[in-house]
Design a binder for these strands. Sequence first.
DNA 1: CAGTGGTCTAGACCACGAA
DNA 2: TCGTGGTCTAGACCACTGT
Lengths: 244, 244
Amino acid sequence: MRSRHHDIAHDLRQQITTGRIQPSERLPSEADLADRYKVSTATLRRALAVLQSEGLIEKIHGKGNFVRRPHRKIMYVGGWGILDPWTAAEPAMRVTIRSATIQAPGHLAALLKMSTGSPIAELSCLSADRESPHGIARTYVPRDLVSAGVLLDDDSTCRETATRFAHVGPPPAAVRETVCARLPAPAEASALRISLGSVVLSITRIATDSAGRVVEATLMAFPSDRVDAVFSTQQMNDEGQAQA
Amino acid sequence: MRSRHHDIAHDLRQQITTGRIQPSERLPSEADLADRYKVSTATLRRALAVLQSEGLIEKIHGKGNFVRRPHRKIMYVGGWGILDPWTAAEPAMRVTIRSATIQAPGHLAALLKMSTGSPIAELSCLSADRESPHGIARTYVPRDLVSAGVLLDDDSTCRETATRFAHVGPPPAAVRETVCARLPAPAEASALRISLGSVVLSITRIATDSAGRVVEATLMAFPSDRVDAVFSTQQMNDEGQAQA
DNA sequence: CAGTGGTCTAGACCACGAA
DNA sequence: TCGTGGTCTAGACCACTGT
């Protein structure tokens, strides 16, 4: 055995993953667990910290330690609209969209290669599985490239719009996606209901037309335990064979 | 102020970011720092853990705590060998390679679509900027696809091999890269000198030939503050224009 | 109020790295 | 061997939640 707190984490992890302790159930108090495992509370808390960093438990001050509900990972498919990443993999996913026309602040103007203050359309998109947020995306398109029918004046919660959202503007000639892992911005953390100390997978998608003009910029953020991203030089089917 | 260890972390952070403690310099020992701040070693270590999770310091058992060189993010370029991600962006990067022939364990056999125990070549690759690890990669290739000259019997530290490493085996017809953010495995955490609770950007690259045979599988892990990954439907130059 | 987790102490002992 | 960080103890006291 390596260290005592890892042993304890391993034991508790087994109890959680095998269902011996159910999701959203409360664990015994730290004092009880420390007593049961014959360790000090400090050591037991190190074990719980391991499980927390793995996303298995959630600590609530004054109430207890709770088993988190497991979440299915969705697959983000790169390369533009091959699959609609928001809806194809998870038919039951609910998507809330809000749209607006804004004047580009500096960082967005740079992404879109426009001058600061240019009018752009913003589509803010929050997907959720049940009550639990799955991801957030903000899409920015030069205002003159957006047909009027796409913009909505108020919030909506429908898959129709989500699908349309994937085809705003003219078809791009090239798509570049940049991926990194980073801490969430405060607004992202609250929208995704994760802690500021956790990590999000961040994907920035830039689409350009054949003339090199940026026709769309999308900033996406997903809790790191909620999504994988996949990029292929060709489409593949489930067997990994190239498709026609 | 919130908690004592946060105060101490804040103070040390100031000393690091203002250059009062230089990059790759060793901090005073934990006992000395605990004495100076009039706290127990446990509290001081909590402060250092904060700095470590921020990527500011690096802990080396038996040697000390060292200020990390400021983050120079490298760019991982998807889509196979368009750029050699290990050397092109960082000419000064040192790469250590170890190679061996092993029998495929189950999870690797599944990736390579071979049967468990099949002979495969493993190339383990650790890149470092000066002394600070930048990333780790393990490449697996079916043994019969590797020409004898590529395999080395012992460790080496040269860029020649690193370049050759990018062209092992026949050219692939398709490449699929899967990206996620996850906790490092214990071996990865120690090789990259990051904490087990921090996050790595994980990229799994699968290359297949025109017949659909998997010719290479590469598992990569990078500290999340050291790398961005970029995927394009076409190569672009710095201005974002498609290239010939 | 009682019960919970959060912070902290002042030690002890172990494991690693360099001389 | 010595100095370093890593693990652990057996408490103390504080902060939050619910009754």
